[in-house]
Each structure stands twice: as structure tokens, then as C-alpha cells.
Amino acid sequence: MKNKRLLSFVIKLILFTLVASFFAWSFKSGYYQLIIDDSEGFIFLLKQHINMVLLSILLAIVLAIPMGILVTRPKFQKLQWLFMNIANLGQTIPSLAILALAMTWMGIGFKPAVFALFLYSLLPILRNTVAGIKSIDPNLLDAAKGIGYTPAQILLKIELPNAAYPIMAGIRTAVVINIGTAALAYLVGGGGLGDWIFTGIMMRDNSYLLSGAIPVTLLALLADQLVRFIEKLVISKGLRQSITISD
């Protein structure tokens, strides 16, 4: 046990040192100078990037959660495989291909990029909503029904609150994936920090490359923490599994 802890500490230390020395090297080489020199451009791209992600995620939430609720109603249970398969398909097609397909239909710019990201976010949210609602102990639903909750009250007061953890996890997954995938939006003229990353790749210019890539990484980490914070606010304390006390 003690050895294990020591080992994990050593590994953490090595990784931390690697990351720190990478940053030290890249700072020393002045690779982030671009962010300061062209701060207006940077902020413009950053905003574009965030806008694409936010809009696509909001659209995905607005569609995927009600869809998940719908297919878990007894009446629509038979449709579940259909919706899940469509969403699965969306996820299986490579993101680049979705962008290309969206472009043939919607042209170039912000719109096809948002549309592709939206399609890509549907599955994690839908899948987790369905799994979350289905994993609720049937005894709970029986008890709720038996003491006189209406179907709508069961949904709002029992099913959604008790499925909140997996649903939020689905949203978190989608946000993090999206921030990374949004870098590809450059390819359809959607803008975002991908502009600098691809410029960097094509010109073999570390300045552009890192000034685009590192902020994207940090953005993903930050968004992950932000959604975790929101989770704490919206998920009932009673659902955080902890010690059980015996009589």
C-alpha cells in the first residue's frame, strides 16, 4: 500500500516536472509572445471558439435531454433503439467527415461548424440521459406512484434529480470533446483558435502552434472544472454516495 502511494507520487512528480519544463522552455523561447503582440486577434479567435462551443452545446442539451426523456417513457420505449442508433451513427462518423458533410450543405463559416459540433455533442448527452433515467431503482418509481405522484411529478421530482449526475457527466464529456474538436472549425472557415494552430502547422511556426494549442487545452481543463462546479450546485447532496451507518 505504502509502495503504491510512493510510486504514484513519483509518477506525478515526473509528469509535473515535464509539464513545467515544457512551459519554461516555451516561455523562454517566446512562443507566447504572439498572444500579447496580437492580443486583439487572440481574443477574437478565443471568443469565436467559445461561441461555437457554447452554442452547439446549448442546442445539443435542448434537444438531447428531452429526447432522452421521451424515449424512456413506456409508450416510446420501442423507439429507443432507433434514437440511440441515430445518435451512435453521429458519433461514429469522424468529426472531419461531419464537417465536410455540413459544409456541402451549409456552405462555409460559423454555421456548419456549429452544426457539426452540435451533432457530435448529441450522443454523450442523450446516452447519459437515457442511462441515468433507466438506472433509477424501480422501487423508487413504484413508491412515488404508490403515494400519489402524477407522471409529470415523478419525472420532475424523482427521475431527473436522481439522474442528474450521469446527465451532467454527459454534458461535461460533450463540452470537453467539443472544445478540442472546435479547433477543426478552421477547415470550414468557422474560425476559432484552430486558425492559429493550422497556421502554425503549415508554416512550421511554433509560435502560432502553441499560442493556439495551449489556450485550447487550458480552456478544456477550465470548462471541465466549471461544469464540475455546476454539478455540485444542481445535484442533491443526498446523491453523493458516502458512508452508510448501521444500526
Binding site: 422501487n139 413504484d142 413508491a143 412515488a144 403515494i147 400519489g148 424523482i158 434529480p161 436522481n162 446523491l239
Partner: peptide, 17 residues
């Protein structure tokens, strides 16, 4: 149902409340 008490084996308490 609101006028009839109902208790089940696995208590069915709502964990979120």
C-alpha cells in the same frame, strides 16, 4: 393513492430528498 398509505420492502425513500 394520496389517501392510502403505502410502504414497500426496500423503503423506496427518495435519495435526492
Amino acid at each position: 393513492r394520496r389517501k392510502i398509505g403505502y410502504v414497500i420492502q426496500h423503503n423506496g425513500l427518495f435519495p435526492n430528498m
